[in-house]
Design a protein around this nucleic acid. Sequence first.
DNA 1: CTTGACCTTGAACCTAGGTTTAAACCCTAT
DNA 2: ATAGGGTTTAAACCTAGGTTCAAGGTCAAG
Lengths: 120, 120
Amino acid sequence: MKIGDIARAAGVTTSRIRFYEKRGIIAPAVRGPNGYRDYPEELIAILRFIEQAQGLGFSLKEIAGVDVAQGDHPISCDEAIRLLSGKLDSVAALIAEAKERQRRIKALIAELQGRKQSAA
Amino acid sequence: MKIGDIARAAGVTTSRIRFYEKRGIIAPAVRGPNGYRDYPEELIAILRFIEQAQGLGFSLKEIAGVDVAQGDHPISCDEAIRLLSGKLDSVAALIAEAKERQRRIKALIAELQGRKQSAA
DNA sequence: CTTGACCTTGAACCTAGGTTTAAACCCTAT
DNA sequence: ATAGGGTTTAAACCTAGGTTCAAGGTCAAG
């Protein structure tokens, strides 16, 4: 499949696919006699996987570390659980931070409203 | 006060102060006869205010919009409440998103652990 | 044989919030 | 007068995740 076919099928741009290739996130494409990239159908699933992983909060760097498209072992179940657990922790930390911000903002609003009352 | 004095007092770098000035987040400094920036002591509080606002999730663009250092009216109480309430909403949205991620990650982990059990 | 759609490359551009660097100037102490 | 610290400027660099551009090659249809 040519890059445009893959792009349409996976719902991503062609530039994004080239970008991933350049960054080593997906394996370099086999080239046809005209120099065009020729990708296996499996890349569609890989690209969807990447979007999914991004949606879960994984950076491209982290995704690249999984070697998803390097033809290596497709990552062990234990490894996947380990990665997900790590991300779970960082998401929890993010939530805690956001809640703290929320708390402080609420306190500020309350203070300002109190000031408004006493001024009135 | 010279830029270095302000920087030390406020706990920021001099480059950051110049950056803020260039971006219009703080007012351009008065210059001494040697061309050195000469800042009023009040800038220290303004810089601290900026850090605080950033900590609450406000971008520099949003902070600049407040015209904190333009010598204008120092922002009305109602206006402050409005801005804070808006930020409160976006923080709530952020938390909701993060929780959704958390939920999905947990579901994935559970699925993988189930797979491990059935494989064992 | 030309038009249009596709592909190639490298490089520049974008947001956000700064940092770093280079080359120059100023001030104070010794 | 010279060393050291401070200051000035513009411009380049950084992370992240891409997009956009320019200039050119390829392919199938009409």
